[in-house]
């Protein structure tokens, strides 16, 4: 247990520096844009949205890089793959929760002072800060899991096969779009659409249920994390 705690601390601490730089740059840009808008229009209301999206992009990159860097360091220090997986998952959960907390708090602050509306705030409202934080945490964890798995797959199958998989996935997306457009009946499309909206918390009666998207993102994240574990168990040092 002591070793696992140390490994989680290591996983988190190696992310503090890039995380600090990220937020400094992000909010630096934000302040710059705001200054330009105020100077040009005299109005402090900001239209650009992107706090959570840029956080999701950043954490995805970290998810992919984490495999490359931390995996090697952990192997050097004698950790098993089981421990590596657990520590990676826990450290990403902690980092995701921290980023979600910053984004939720700053989103609320910005809304009051410069009338900035976050993407999540617009979708789900600002009424439940705790639930919004949880929801955002699971979204970030899900993004981590997708890119961590992607890094594992690329490591396992190599560049060429990964590109082929990428092309294949694009094909599948186009195929699904075509199925919805030309094959499925309007009733089926409507039922699938309704199910998807419900899964993301938008109920048929117009209300928003935050529990459903939390569950949805948890399930998607869990699938990717399990996939990652299955691959990591057999991953060797190259």
């Amino acid at each position: 247990m002591k070793m696992l705690r140390s490994a989680i601390s290591y996983g988190c601490s190696t992310k503090i520096r890039p995380l600090t730089i990220f937020y400094l740059v992000e909010y630096g840009f934000f302040a710059l844009i705001m200054a330009i808008v105020v100077l040009c229009t005299g109005n402090a209301a900001l239209n650009p949205r992107g706090v959570e999206i840029s956080s999701a992009v950043f954490i995805s990159i970290m998810g992919a890089l984490s495999f490359k860097e931390d995996f090697k360091a952990f192997l050097q220090n004698g950790f098993t793959r089981g421990y590596i997986f657990l520590s990676t998952f826990c450290s990403f959960f902690i980092v995701s929760a921290s980023m979600a907390l910053i984004d939720t708090l700053l989103g609320n602050v910005l809304r009051h002072f410069v009338k900035y509306f976050t993407f999540f705030g617009m979708l789900y409202g600002y009424g439940h800060m705790l639930t919004t934080w949880l929801l955002l945490t699971f979204v970030y964890v899900m993004f981590c899991s997708i890119f961590y798995l992607a890094a594992l797959v690329i490591n396992k199958v190599g560049k060429t096969a990964s590109l082929l998989i990428g092309v294949g996935l694009s094909g599948v997306i186009l195929l699904i779009a075509a199925l919805f457009r030309f094959v499925f009946s309007p009733e089926l499309v409507s039922r699938i659409g309704s199910f998807a909206l419900n899964a993301f918390g938008f109920m048929n009666d117009g209300t928003v249920e935050l529990v459903f998207p939390i569950l949805t993102f948890t399930v998607i994240g869990a699938v990717f994390w399990l996939g990652s574990y299955a691959l990591l168990r057999h991953t060797e040092l190259k």
């Binding site: 190696t14 860097e69 090697k72 360091a73 040092l237």
Partner: peptide
């Protein structure tokens, strides 16, 4: 190890 497995930024 002969190969570098340590975090290069630390």
């Amino acid at each position: 190890s002969e190969t570098d497995l340590y975090d290069r930024d630390l």
